[in-house]
């Protein structure tokens, strides 16, 4: 199939884009890399009257780092993150998660802002935003606002964005050099959306006990989530095998795990638990699974 008929505009300024979106009152969509929107158009799952291409808008493809953390412009592509000279040091969790995004062709075109706005429950970037307490900067007719990731993802493919708003930047809080972290996901084929995925990071106090653990999960519920029970169980503990098993056993605690044609809920829960075990082991730099068999 080909997309239904639509108009196309490529404004040079953010103000121009916002004006177009506002004028169409929900009947226009922003297009950047087009890696989610184009398939939806071709399958005719959506039929906006206007596509507003933001590719020509200046200053949306910056990657910068400072005392307040890492800032990624909405037009930053996965390939930009992979190739960036210092990002692997500045935010290694982001870089590791990005390596799981789809295939080369998609990584060459897909954007950070597009992934956040599309809000697929199994996508990596929304999961990183949730796990890291990212701030999402959006601009609309009413001006700029900053939306915490926790408030941004409302449901499957649903966000807090207003129809006239454009994501301009995502801010990830500062990343200390000594931080423990890991990202794990499981998909049916290489590059497919995750059946389940886990992002973990924490710091250690002077006694080797976990401070402020963050555990995010993708693919298991209608939106990326924090695993609150597992985080609470991990906080204040030294990370040994016993702690890992105890924490991972709480992985799906309180979650309404989703089922779809690719996997039933029980298998997703099992995957979530084992991925969390693996992520915790890797974050703690412990050896792989115990010789249990």
């Amino acid at each position: 199939m080909k997309p239904p008929r639509f108009d196309y505009a490529r404004p040079d300024s953010l103000a121009g884009a916002i004006a177009l979106l506002a004028a169409h009152n929900g009947d226009a969509k922003v297009i950047a890399g087009g890696q989610s929107l184009m398939p939806m158009l071709n399958f005719r799952l959506t039929s906006p009257r206007l596509l507003v291409d933001i590719a020509r808008i200046a200053d949306l493809n910056h990657i910068s780092a400072g005392a307040d953390g890492v800032r990624l412009g909405a037009l930053v592509r996965w390939r930009d993150i992979e190739r960036h000279p210092t990002l692997a040091k500045l935010h290694p969790l982001l870089v590791e998660a990005t390596s799981h995004v789809a295939h080369y062709q998609i990584r060459n075109r897909g954007t950070v802002g597009g992934s956040l706005a599309h809000a697929d429950p199994a996508a990596e970037m929304p999961g990183i935003a949730i796990a890291c307490d990212a701030q999402i900067i959006v601009v609309g007719r009413a001006g700029q606002r900053t939306i915490p990731a926790a408030d941004f993802f409302v449901g499957a493919l649903m966000t807090a964005l207003e129809p006239d708003e454009v994501i301009v930047e995502v801010r990830l809080p500062p990343w200390p050099g000594e931080r423990h972290f890991a990202f794990e996901e499981f998909s049916r084929r290489k590059g497919d959306f995750a059946l389940a995925g886990v992002a973990v990071f924490y710091d250690l106090d002077g006694q080797g006990r976990v401070i402020d653990p963050h555990i995010g999960a993708i693919g298991v519920t209608s939106r990326p989530v924090r695993l609150n029970a597992a985080e609470a169980a991990l906080a204040g503990r030294a990370v040994d095998e016993a702690a890992i098993l105890a924490v991972a056993a709480l992985a799906d605690d309180g979650l309404d795990v989703a089922e779809d044609i690719h996997a039933p809920a029980d298998y997703r829960r099992a995957l979530l638990q084992v991925l969390l075990e693996r992520a915790l082991r890797r974050a703690a730099r412990l050896p792989d699974a115990e010789q249990t068999q």
Binding site: P39, H103, R188, R189, K190, G191, D192, I261, H262
Partner: peptide, 15 residues
């Protein structure tokens, strides 16, 4: 219920 190449998984070159 999975009548598309998005949902029906044939091997890709990476598989």
């Amino acid at each position: 219920t999975n009548a598309s190449l998005a949902d029906y998984k044939i091997p890709s070159i990476l598989d």
